[in-house]
Amino acid sequence: MAGSLTFALRRLLLAVPVLLGVVFIVMLTLELVPGDAVAMMLGEHATKAAVDRLREHLGLDKPLLVRYAQYVGQLARGDLGRSIIQNRPVVDELADTWPATLELTVAALLIAALVGVPAGVVSAVRPNSSFDALARLGSLFGLSMPVFWTGLVLIVLFSLWLPWLPVGGRGSLAHLVLPAVALALPSIAMLARLTRSSVLEVLHEDYVRTARAKGLQELAVVVKHGLRNALLPIVTLVGIQAGQLMGGAVLTETVFAWPGLGRLMVKAIFARDYVLLQGAVLVFALAFVLVNLLVDLSYGLLDPRISRQG
């Protein structure tokens, strides 16, 4: 266990320069904004003196590298600055919204895993059956439907025509159903496809034939020998899907008025609140890096042959 702890710590330290790079890229892109961002914030009737005062107040009169160094210094103390529009600490705004996004993405990831993986396994066990054909067709559509559109279609179906579920907002479990399902659909499709192909591949292995020859029940063969050995690529994909889900959350949160980080980010963009935007992007990137770290750590548990000297 000590080994995996050092591994985790080392990977966590390696993530620091990546996240600092993310901050730099965001600041750099905002630097490239054509026109005067501060003047746009104040509107066309602002005087030059007012624009200069605000620029100085926001620290935007200093060169990019100086601002970057300052921001990183603040970051080290856990300070992400104050949002321009609300004049509240960005940390507070993020703290208000991230639980909602976590709830939504975790729910979607659970749905994706609980539907996608079993569907893929059944497809692999009965290839070219009618279930397999249906599942593959479903996956193709799942991958091709934009989540914001699926969300709206679900609202029409289950809030308008069949008034079963709320149109939007957050609160009860009923509020969570539609956004989580809309967000999960592409991931269900990806997982079902990958699970099918990797289980199909494993089921041709000699040890599976041996297990069958020993007289093991088919279910045990499929789960213990098939799925267990096909898990590695599946878990990797779950990690990648976490990133997809976070990006998709920006869209589903907008569709369902879900009070999360994604909606906050879109609001920040329209309000030209770059301090808030930086903070939101940083939290998303941090979460993505952490999920991938968890995925890497799970390799050792899933396959003891994989050493942790990475």
């Binding site: 990546v18 890229i25 990006g247 998709g248 998303f284 993505f288």
Partner: peptide
């Protein structure tokens, strides 16, 4: 660093 941005972001 560019790949550390989740999907759409």
């Amino acid at each position: 660093i560019l790949l550390a941005f989740p999907y759409l972001l």
